[in-house]
Write a protein that binds this DNA or RNA. Structure first.
Length: 941
DNA sequence: CTCGTCACG
DNA sequence: GACGTACGTGACGAGT
């Protein structure tokens, strides 16, 4: 330990930059970029250089500037940890091909910036960082580790802190505690227990960070815990620790950073040096980074060197222009409006500007039950206001006070002033998930229009890349973490509603939401055009908001008595089955527990079946039980019956009753526009898109969905829409002709493939062809088809080969789509909706998923776009008819129609649906819509 | 709070 | 050459 004999000491500040993490960040954050002159991939290098330049800019002037700094890299993926555990990081994908040649270039870049550049064979960057941090700490200096790697959190404390580079967030002991539930010195213990699937650290099965922290806090440290594992009360936990003690100890050695890495230099060698203009400019110029070269040249007051050739423009610009925004939220100017004068001033300003960001605070996420508590507005970034309206005193008497807090404007007065603004066609109302706010205002007789929605803008721009909730968007695009609602409302049983939140807290929270919304809007709005998704946003996303809001508020009538009677019947049958099952098993157990069932079947009765998956539990899915039942075992057959009833009862007949609105007597689902990456909607609370129909027993549940007296339910659905779209996209003449002639498409496929004339078609052959047709839409694989049809894999593969031979255009479509996705990172529907496929160029099973998803997305997505177009047109078409649109189930729309108008409505809706792709898109195949009418949904289908 | 299971298109 | 796979969802109970 002679390394403290250097000049580094008290007053010194060492920055340690995790170079490898920077590279991966840069690589994934930026579009692929190649050097113009020779095509060398340099996107990650460009991003890396930009980061370093920004880093130097931010730190050079700061009072807390580092005196010493180094960039540390991983030497290779193999380290001493592989000696301890050969599977360490074994499932880490290989770096992408176009990244590999950039690794040495990033070292060159780091040196060009005159930063000490360190990598050591056999040791991870983390170990080197740990060693340097220890040395600096022992010498009395301070250390800042610039990285987001959670492993490094072990090092925090005693003058060492971390800086999360993207969010610019400091991580100290408190933040580590927040993340791991223990202090930095025990982080490795928690990691050893919890394991890490990314690095393939085994840990203890069934124990995550939460449980691990709990145990470590109770027993002090890992060794004590392992020594006293017998004392643990929970049998599963106890067993997990005792059985895996060795693995846990190995895990600890894997996660524990080695702060004794042999180094052949001293801290003093890391002293910060100004970059050498010549060297840096030379390197940047070599890389042909035009913008950065110019910027750096300006900084040094020299001329940028001449480029190797004059054409080096284009892509480099776009890549380098993507510096994240850094709005300063600290300066935010938020007010609370408590008098009408101030409100009027704000309103005149809104009228002048012509737009405003709006957000409502309410007592519930369910718009049908929510009460308005307050409204926030934002005019310009940083300037926002909150209008408290219905805050109530918290605590108080046992029954919950209903007293309004003083100092709030009267709801009616405020709405009277705001209604003209919210309904003014010349004022754009901007929201995040506007459907919610629009429904709240609709409850109060206000029809908000026109609107913009930042959530939908993000969906159009970034579908497939990430979620579109406000927290995620703010974090990602504004580098700002909004106040979590949990800090105001608490969690779990003791959670309060927003009306019980203090007005000061509410103002900070609500005004911030409107502020963030406005900032996101300013950022996204101009990007829509550049990304060529303006039309998608304007014609497929935004106009859907009022349509869905109306459908959701209308709801569908559900007959409680029918459900209740079915629930009782199911309960009786289940009890009978349960008794039989216990009898067959020879003991009582919870039939609903896959774990207990697995043990009964495979341990006690020793039937054939294997362990599965990460948790080590037996698989007891329907396919497994069906196989066992087919072998003549009664118990699994009974369990299958029991499960069906259990599902129907708990998910449908019981749960649906709770969703019947007390006042309307109807069920009001909520559609999530951004719910599926393909453009499909998702339905929640309750999900009305998965009401049973395939089994006779389940189908009866649809008899509880009824029409109002004097009305009928009319259901219209697209016939084979996805196969028709496939025929069009892949341009398959024979399929297109079959659809034009109205043939049975599965029979026709079977006939083509197996050479059976249509007249001699058997149901079995047709069934197989049908499975293949579906498989094609899903991105077929021999394995998948074999499993679906329960035939040998070789047979399935032979089917697929025959299919592709007969329909070569389909294979061409698939290959072309995957090719496009690999090149562009996304696929598109026929209407231009973009679905990103970030995983497609990775190695490992993820790429397989991404490939099939890429094949499926244009088909499923185009179908979704078409029904969206129909839904958007329909309100106007049925406006003067006694008909309401109630539900959408992907390819089906359900209406409630006065009896005497059924025929007219059906034909008008059918016409709109069948022509929904036009005039933008003229399909080579007809779209056919089937219709059904009845008193209940079961009859209408 | 995650997993297995199963309902739909 | 092995691996692990049909696409897209949401809700429930069990178990921790």
């Amino acid at each position: 330990m002679s390394d403290s004999e250097t000049g580094f000491g008290k007053g010194c500040h060492l920055h340690l930059i995790d170079g490898s993490a920077y590279i991966f960040r840069a690589y994934h954050a930026l579009p692929p970029l190649a050097r113009k002159s020779d095509g060398l991939p340099v996107g990650a290098v460009a991003g890396f250089c930009n980061m370093l330049w920004r880093y130097l800019g931010e730190n050079g002037a700061s009072a807390d500037a580092p005196t010493h700094a180094a960039v540390i890299f991983d030497y290779s993926s193999k380290t001493f940890r592989n000696e301890i555990y050969d599977l360490y990081k074994a499932n880490r994908p290989e770096p992408p091909e176009d990244l590999r040649p950039q690794f040495p270039l990033t070292r060159d870049a780091s040196r060009a910036f005159n930063l000490a550049t360190i990598e050591i064979e056999d040791f991870e960057a983390d170990d080197i960082i740990a060693t340097l941090a220890r040395q600096a700490r022992e010498a009395g200096g301070r250390v800042t580790i610039i990285s987001s790697d959670k492993d490094l959190m072990q090092l925090v404390g005693g003058g060492v802190e971390m800086l999360e580079p993207m969010k610019n967030k400091l991580i100290g002991v408190e933040e580590v505690r927040e993340k791991f539930g223990v202090g930095p010195e025990r982080v490795a213990d928690v990691q050893a227990l919890a394991g890490d699937s990314v690095d393939n650290v085994p840990g203890a099965p069934g124990i995550g960070i939460k449980t691990a922290a709990l145990l470590i806090n109770e027993y002090g440290d890992l060794e004590t815990l392992l020594a006293r594992a017998e004392e643990i009360k929970q049998p599963k936990r106890r067993a997990a620790l005792i059985d895996n003690a060795d693995l846990i100890r190995i895990s600890k050695r894997l996660v524990l950073l080695d702060d004794k890495t042999p180094l052949d230099f001293a801290l003093d060698d890391l002293e910060v040096r100004a970059p050498d203009a010549q060297a840096l400019l030379g390197f940047l110029n070599d890389m042909e980074f035009r913008t950065l070269t110019r910027r750096v040249a300006e900084h040094f007051g020299t001329e940028p060197p001449a480029l190797p050739q004059s054409t080096a423009t284009g892509q480099t610009e776009t890549a380098e222009a993507k510096a994240p925004d850094h709005p300063d939220f600290d300066k935010a100017d938020y007010i609370c409006i408590r008098d009408l004068g101030t409100l009027k001033t704000w309103i005149s300003e809104i009228e002048e500007i012509g737009y405003v960001a709006v957000d409502t605070e309410t007592t519930s996420l369910d718009e049908m039950r929510a009460e308005l508590v307050g409204i926030s507005l934002c005019l310009t970034a940083g300037r926002a206001a909150y209008i408290p309206l219905q805050h109530r005193a918290g605590g108080g008497d046992l029954f919950g006070s209903t007293e309004l807090v003083a100092g709030q404007l009267a709801l009616d007065d405020v709405l009277a002033l705001l209604k003209p603004v919210l309904e003014d066609q010349a004022i754009l109302k901007i929201g995040q998930n506007m459907k919610y706010d629009a429904k709240i205002f609709a409850n109060l007789g206000i029809s908000v229009s026109p609107i913009d929605d930042t959530m939908l803008m993000s969906y159009a721009l970034h579908g497939g890349l990430h979620g579109h909730g406000m927290d995620a968007l703010s974090d990602r695009y504004l580098n700002h973490q909004p106040i979590p609602i949990k800090t105001l409302l608490g969690g779990g049983k003791s959670a309060i509603t927003f009306d019980r939140v203090g007005i000061d807290d509410a103002t900070r929270y609500a005004a911030e939401d409107a502020d963030i919304t406005l900032r996101l809007w300013e950022l996204f709005k101009p990007r829509l055009h550049g990304a060529q998704v303006s039309r998608v946003y304007e014609t497929l996303e935004r106009p859907l908001v009022p349509v869905l809001a109306q459908m959701e508020r209308t709801g569908i009538k559900v007959d409680r008595d029918i459900l209740s009677r079915m629930s009782n019947a199911f309960a009786q049958k289940m009890a009978g089955l349960e008794a039989e099952i216990h009898e067959l098993a020879g003991e009582r157990f919870n039939v609903g527990s896959p774990k207990q069932l697995g043990e009964i079947l495979f341990d006690k009765m020793s039937l054939q079946g294997g362990k599965k998956g990460k948790t080590g539990a037996y698989a007891t899915g329907a396919d497994v039980l069906e196989d066992l039942a087919a072998e003549g075992h009664d118990l699994p057959a009974r369990v299958l019956d029991w499960r069906q009833l259990s599902k129907l009862k708990s998910t449908y007949t019981d749960a649906l009753q709770d969703h019947i609105h007390p006042e309307t007597g109807r069920v009001h689902t909520s559609y999530v526009i951004t719910g599926a990456v393909t453009g499909r909607l998702a339905s929640t609370d309750p999900n009305l898109q998965n009401i049973p129909i395939r089994s006779e027993e389940g189908r009866r549940i649809r008899t509880a969905f009824v029409a109002e007296k004097g009305h009928k339910l009319v259901a219209l659905d697209y016939s084979q829409i996805e196969l028709r779209i496939l025929a069009h996209i892949a341009d398959i003449d024979s399929l297109k002709a079959a659809f034009r002639e109205g043939q049975d498409i599965h029979a026709m496929t079977a006939s083509e493939m197996f050479g059976v004339p249509l007249a001699e078609m058997t149901p079995e052959i047709r069934r197989q062809a049908k499975a293949i047709n579906f498989g094609v839409i899903y991105g077929i694989s021999g394995f998948g088809l074999a499993r679906n049809l329960r035939i040998p894999r070789s047979d399935a593969q032979a089917f697929i080969d025959t299919y592709f031979e007969r329909f070569p255009g389909i294979r061409a479509y698939m290959d072309g789509t995957v090719e496009f996705a690999k090149r562009e990172g996304r696929v598109e529907t026929l209407f231009g909706r973009r679905v990103h496929t970030p995983e497609i160029n990775t190695k490992g099973p993820g790429a397989g998923f991404a490939k099939r998803a890429a094949i499926n997305a244009p088909i499923q997505g185009t179908a979704a776009d078409i029904i969206r177009r129909a839904m958007i047109r329909l309100p106007e078409v049925i406006a003067d008819l006694p008909a309401k649109m109630l539900l959408q189930v992907h390819d089906e729309l359900v209406f409630e129609v006065a009896e005497d108008a059924v025929e007219e409505v059906t034909e008008k809706v059918r016409a709109v649906m069948e022509a929904a792709s036009e005039p933008v898109l003229r399909l080579d195949v007809p779209l056919v819509v089937d219709a059904g009418v009845g008193d209940t949904w079961a009859e209408a289908h």
